[in-house]
């Protein structure tokens, strides 16, 4: 199950083989896409937060979604996972239409996400957090819940599965602790482990490294790579370029809501469009005071909205 140190794991080879020879163009078709996105648009008042023309995610790969602040990455994530409603566009997951599907059904179909600000359920124990991820629980039905014999057996199976995952993520010692007592990095691990309890095909990680103690970074990276080993597809948002280079097979770059480039990590890092997108603002003339304030405002709004689990939005009606 674990990748052997030093050798390139087979899944990585397979993923790289699938990407070989693909042109580094936005919207390039992939040999075996698990997720196909077409013309997704999300506007907040006058501002277009997301405007993605076409994007495909290759099955069995680790794809990074990068872009400067305010590029619409998290908003795009929210659209795809049903946490926000797109104004237009459609996307398919495993060939199944997913636009307009509510968040919980998206998850049931095997597309499971994590959040930028970790959502560990802090007043539940680590084990309860894990159990919650399991699907098709008989005991989650109101009437069955009243008769423990109906769900005890299943609960034991779930617990066993959760224990294995926790051991893998080195959280087994904490399993009876309240999730609130974990460190930031441990919460990230727990959130990822909990997402795996759902049994996803596509794991969508929103900034999995944000706020994680550097000592834990390597172990987290290992876990992400592990997901691919187990045949899952990973799509993740990240800022840390080193990490992107290290683990991703393919990189998609967003700026101002649109996909401006995609390709293998090394190609992307030297793409002038990407450099422009990241550094553009600094190349240009200094910002005026109003622009600075506007930028600050947007960033704040995004931060606040993300804190509430909703996408960033801007003024709809002026005062």
């Amino acid at each position: 199950m674990h990748a052997d140190e030093g050798t390139t794991p087979s899944s990585r080879k397979a993923a790289l083989a699938a990407f070989a020879g693909l042109p580094s163009e936005p919207g390039v078709p992939k040999p075996d896409p698990i997720l196909v996105v077409d013309k997704v648009v999300r506007r907040f008042g006058g501002l277009t937060a997301v405007n993605v023309d076409h994007v495909e995610i290759q099955r069995g790969s680790i794809t990074a979604l990068i872009g400067p602040n305010g590029a619409g990455k998290t908003t795009f994530f929210n659209q795809l996972t049903g946490f926000d409603t797109a104004d237009a566009g459609e996307w398919t997951f495993n060939g199944r239409k997913m636009n307009g599907v509510p968040a919980h059904k998206v998850a049931r179909h095997g597309m499971v996400r994590t959040f930028q600000l970790t959502k560990a359920l802090s007043k539940l124990t680590v084990m309860e957090n894990m159990r919650l991820g399991a699907q098709g629980q008989r005991g989650e039905n109101f009437f069955n819940a009243l008769i423990p014999s109906l769900w005890r057996g299943q609960e034991d199976e779930i617990t066993e599965r959760a224990e294995k995952l926790l051991a893998r993520f080195k959280l087994d010692a904490k399993s009876e602790d309240f999730a609130g007592s974990l460190s930031g990095g441990q919460r990230k691990l727990l959130e990822m482990a909990r997402a795996l309890m759902v049994g996803p095909e596509l794991v969508m990680l929103d900034e999995p490294m944000a706020g994680v103690n550097p000592a834990l970074t390597q172990s987290l990276l290992g876990h992400v790579k592990d997901l691919r080993e187990q045949g899952m597809t990973v799509l993740f948002v990240e800022h840390d370029m080193d990490m992107v280079r290290d683990i991703s097979d393919w990189v998609i770059v967003m700026a101002q809501g649109a996909v401006i480039s995609e390709g293998p990590p090394d190609t992307i890092m030297s793409d002038p469009r990407v450099i422009d997108a990241y550094l553009g603002a600094h190349h240009d003339a200094p910002l005026s005071a109003e622009e600075l304030e506007e930028q600050l405002h947007e960033a704040e709004a995004e931060l606040q909205a993300e804190a509430e689990g909703t996408p960033a939005s801007t003024k709809e009606a002026a005062e």
Partner: peptide
Amino acid sequence: KAIREDEDAVRSLGK
């Protein structure tokens, strides 16, 4: 209880 803590997390887990 999970909804009480964070309903988006619960949604993301398919409930």
